[in-house]
Design a protein around this nucleic acid. Structure first.
Lengths: 218, 218
DNA sequence: AGCAAATTGTTAATTTTTTAACATATTTTA
DNA sequence: TAAAATATGTTAAAAAATTAACAATTTGCT
């Protein structure tokens, strides 16, 4: 890894896909790949693939291509998956439970060290071997275990209130499934939003557009 | 609504956010808003806001701004939320259950008419008042109820197999939570991917980057 | 009624992103 | 071993997206 100025979000958002693809072909036994082949299989252009990798210094070899293992490993390092993060989950409702049980946190360097909910019925039960605590105990927990990443699976207003409390304990990284716009209130946090309903509405637009296009072509 | 050539994805992906924001301020009783104000609150530029709306003909008034209700309603229509869609959910595991119970389908014109899983223990139970059926009955169901939208909450290989069967019954719209790359196999389907793990890896990159930046500034 | 302030729709400029081109280096083949 | 094929890294061109500028129009105030 060599140069690295300010990488654009467009490039960053493609990295996980490269990573997934390379992991997959590696486990299929593929040892090397060219930008052309990679581009074809991922439906990108070879130019873009080379440009992307060159943001980080380029790790291919002329006439040969890229070593799948080396490339995969470089991207893993670029993504910072090795850096250890301590995460807590806020909200153990349907969404929170799905995220907790479905997402592979460990391969990304994330330890889920606490889960909080205000629903009395859930408190005391466990999820993924982690005990669900009352949100009342949030401060005490944060003081003791110092999480740095919070996964927000609570409604908007709850998210706003909880973030205020978490911010006081230096939690600066958020994976946000709520509609609360964190970035508007805090300028120095890193927030990654997952807005499923926006995604679904985008699909609605495209369906509507497709139906219209089909009706015209008839 | 007037002109509408080919709208770029950049614009389309902003529409749901406008829609959510406008719905919200409308319920707060706000009647009108200017591009400047809208831009400030959504952290965009006024230019971009006006450009975006003008893709669809522009529905503001000089010197006045936009009517919140009219704008909201126009965007609702542009998104095609009124068009009725019949959806089925594939996979009633943790993720499928979260999606089914968490997502507001109806306000987007989507009826969830069927849920399928291969897990014997789930078959026969209900979710959101919809009975969970065996995937064995998929063809029979499709023939009878003609769903046009499928929500994929199953692992990659299952997704591939199920899509093949769904495609045979003219299901062309997919909300895909799996890692199966539908678009690679079918050119005439509309797929909206939700790759939560990619989102989390993107966050990891940004955390790593932030940590590095902070360590340098010290 | 008339004037200042506000605000759009639209055109132009700028910036960012993507794609193409090519010189350079390595591998493969004969 | 020499030539042909392959494929990178990089520079240049093209396309797309964002931002700025401004003329035209409406509102609101006096």
């Amino acid at each position: 890894m060599a140069k690295r100025d300010k990488i654009s979000m467009s490039v960053i958002r493609r990295l996980p896909r490269y990573y997934r693809f390379l992991s997959e072909i590696q486990s299929d036994g593929v040892m090397r790949i060219s930008s052309k082949e990679l581009a074809e299989k991922m439906r990108l252009t070879a130019s873009q693939v080379r440009q992307d990798f060159n943001c980080f210094g380029g790790f291919g070899q002329q006439g040969y291509g890229y070593s799948v293992e080396q490339l995969r490993s470089e991207i893993e390092s670029i993504l910072g998956l090795h850096e250890q993060k301590r995460a807590i989950l806020l909200g153990a409702g349907n969404l929170g439970r799905a995220v907790a049980s479905h997402m592979a946190f460990e391969p990304k360097g994330i330890s889920l060290i606490g889960i909080f909910d205000r629903n009395e019925e859930l408190i005391g039960t466990t999820l993924r071997n982690v005990k669900i605590d009352s949100t009342d105990e949030l401060e005490q927990f944060c003081a003791k275990y110092r999480p740095n990443l919070a996964v927000l699976c609570v409604p908007k207003d709850a998210a706003r209130q909880l973030c205020k409390r978490l911010y006081a304990f230096d939690v600066r990284y958020y994976w946000n499934f709520s509609h609360y716009d964190l970035a508007a209130d805090y300028s120095d946090v890193v927030v990654e939003n997952v807005h499923m309903s926006d995604s679904l509405m985008t699909l609605c637009y495209r369906i509507s557009d497709d139906i219209e296009a089909r009706s015209k072509s008839e």
